[in-house]
Design a protein around this nucleic acid. Structure first.
Lengths: 350, 350
DNA sequence: CGCCGGTGTGTAACCGGTTTCACAGCGCTG
DNA sequence: CAGCGCTGTGAAACCGGTTACACACCGGCG
């Protein structure tokens, strides 16, 4: 158990005061060439690295960013955290990462934990960015944060996202252009995702624009297994004609829904087309490759950190920034089967 | 910008000294009922939460664990970090997460950064757990750590993993049992993964036991795209008979290789069987579902944290702990085509 | 020669907790 | 009633840095 090397150890070895050591290491204030030389030699010999704790105590700000996301096991969040981490490291900061496990009730507790760590700022994805006491609390406490994937409607909050409604509209229009009319939107629980809600809104708009009736969303549990998803689909299909296309609110759900469809003995995309959102990279590898809305997930994380540092520096605006998305057609979308003109879904489900 | 609430604010409002506040909050030392009542009331009214920085300064240990992994975008690491995070939170700790991006040269720098943050301990996945100066440094500095996925051969290092060689043997034997003889092992760069090496060793052992000759590993870049993988396969297949089975050193690579095989106009598994390692959950959703070695990835993260706390408490051993793995057959493995008895791969590649 | 200003350096306060130590007050025992 | 021990409390040291401030030293100028 070697004695810890502190700034005092260095000062003793260099034959100067701790103030001089600090000045040399941070380049603040004046220092003679010989003092600097001796300090640098001592630092090198001792392998001294200043404690971030001691440093933080004075300014009450650490070189640490807090991250709050629903889950690490969804590749779309993992990918954005990868971007956040890389960009934070560029700025000499590290990341405190926490997950709510899709439970909005945990948001407040996690934020409090991170605030107790005196993070310099937060990057978050929350369930509801508009009516959110936790974010209100951060606002009043003056702690800067940037939202990722969230798209607050009421402004005054910094966010980096894509235009979810527009992407839902784009994706739905792609289906309509291929002759689909009975298009069902399958969503994760709306309460835990404003993305889901906005994507559905885009879907509904595209349907209306095409003179089609939007069906109510089929709400499923993100995290349930294929069997549960199959049961949900079968239950629905028993009381209404089978849709020719399923738009799922995210890629992970789309992969599970596609598996459930295959389980039912139907082919993707010949019998039913399936699409998702997010553009997770695995979607390119599977067969049929997944039709999706491609998002710059990693870049979104990087931009969020850049904007967070702007907020910390008191430049930068609390506004929503939209990054471009792109339709990736993939192989899981095909032209609508011709023999299925039974009518719109909504007439039966309404 | 509200004045920060410190322990002194609370003491003033409760009409006592900061020592009493500290004692009440931590349950250390005696405190009268009335003093405790006043302190708790003040804490509640002010919403006081003690700064972790101030707390840490005294003991020079934070309630923070450091995590070093190759990448967050590989679901197998993301999943273990999820387990690490959940278990750490149970113990009231938070996670500093960093990624090497598969560059072993960054390990030292990241560890130094985390050590400067005075982490209580580290959970790591490194390229080479046996000959590793960074780990040596942690040993001499007396900083506890537990390895995940790594399987150090020379003992003296705490690790949580599966028996990678045994899993390679099990998987290979499954192929042999289905009549495969020309089985190729496709690996990520060996230099960046001891798992790859050990899984190959298990493959080679199973081949030898069955009287078959093991082929040299086909080393590929984990992160390259499908097109690059296709080129690599075509180049190899041009000079030797096409194997009937491809065992890939991890699931992400297996998915990419399967896509490359399909790109070449071959069917999985009718023409070529494909398998991976890790048991990422997405492997169950794709079609054909992926044959793999199922690992308790999340549990591995949880166990690592449990053992790390044992090390911190100076109970607990620096030893390798093997968790059970399970062969998941899936649909990407089929019986070997009958007309392919051209001979073992090794005779041609050697 | 006295004064001014700049340069290099050390001392000490400070940040927000934890913890040691001293001590007051009280009840008990001898 | 003296002395002991226990309980509750506060003052102050302490952790490892940063930084305000004092000051010594030196060269240049009036």
């Amino acid at each position: 158990m070697p004695r810890p090397v502190t700034i005092r150890t260095v000062a003793r070895m260099a034959g100067c005061s701790i103030a001089t050591v600090s000045r040399v290491m941070n380049g603040t204030g004046p220092a003679s060439v010989e003092a600097e030389t001796r300090v640098r030699a001592a630092v090198a010999e001792l392998g001294f690295r200043p404690s971030e704790i001691g440093r933080s105590l004075k300014t009450l700000r650490t070189r640490t960013l807090g991250v709050v996301i629903p889950s690490l096991t969804n590749p779309v969040f993992a990918s954005s955290v990868a971007g956040i981490e890389a960009e934070a490291r560029k700025h000499g900061h590290v990341l405190l990462v926490t997950a709510t496990d899709y439970d909005p009730g945990r948001e407040r507790e996690l934020v409090d934990t991170l605030v107790a760590q005196s993070v310099a700022g937060l990057v978050m994805t929350v369930a509801d960015p508009d009516s959110n006491p936790t974010l209100d609390h951060l606002d009043t406490a003056g702690i800067p944060y940037v939202l990722v994937y969230n798209e607050p409607q009421r402004s005054g909050r910094a966010a980096v996202t894509v235009d979810n409604a527009a992407s839902g509209r784009t994706l739905t229009r792609a289906f309509i252009d291929k002759g689909h009319a009975r298009i069902l939107f399958v969503g994760g629980r709306f309460s835990s995702s404003d993305r889901s809600r906005l994507r559905y809104r885009g879907y509904a708009l595209a349907m209306r624009e095409a003179g089609l009736q939007a069906a109510p969303v089929l709400e499923l549990d993100y995290l349930a297994d294929v069997a549960a998803h199959r049961v949900a689909l079968e239950t629905l299909f028993a009381v209404q004609p089978c849709p020719s296309a399923l738009i799922c609110s995210n890629d992970l759900l789309a992969l599970s829904i596609a598996a459930a469809v295959r389980d039912m003995g139907l082919r993707v995309p010949q019998d039913i087309s399936v699409a998702g959102f997010d553009g997770i990279s695995i979607g390119r590898l599977v067969s049929p490759s997944l039709c999706t809305i491609d998002q710059p997930t990693r870049l979104m994380g990087e931009r969020a950190v850049q904007r967070l540092f702007e907020l910390i520096a008191c430049t930068g605006l609390r506004a929503v920034e939209h990054l471009p998305f792109r339709l990736r057609l993939g192989e899981s979308i095909a032209a609508a089967p011709e023999d299925t003109g039974i009518g719109p879904l909504a007439t039966l489900t309404a």
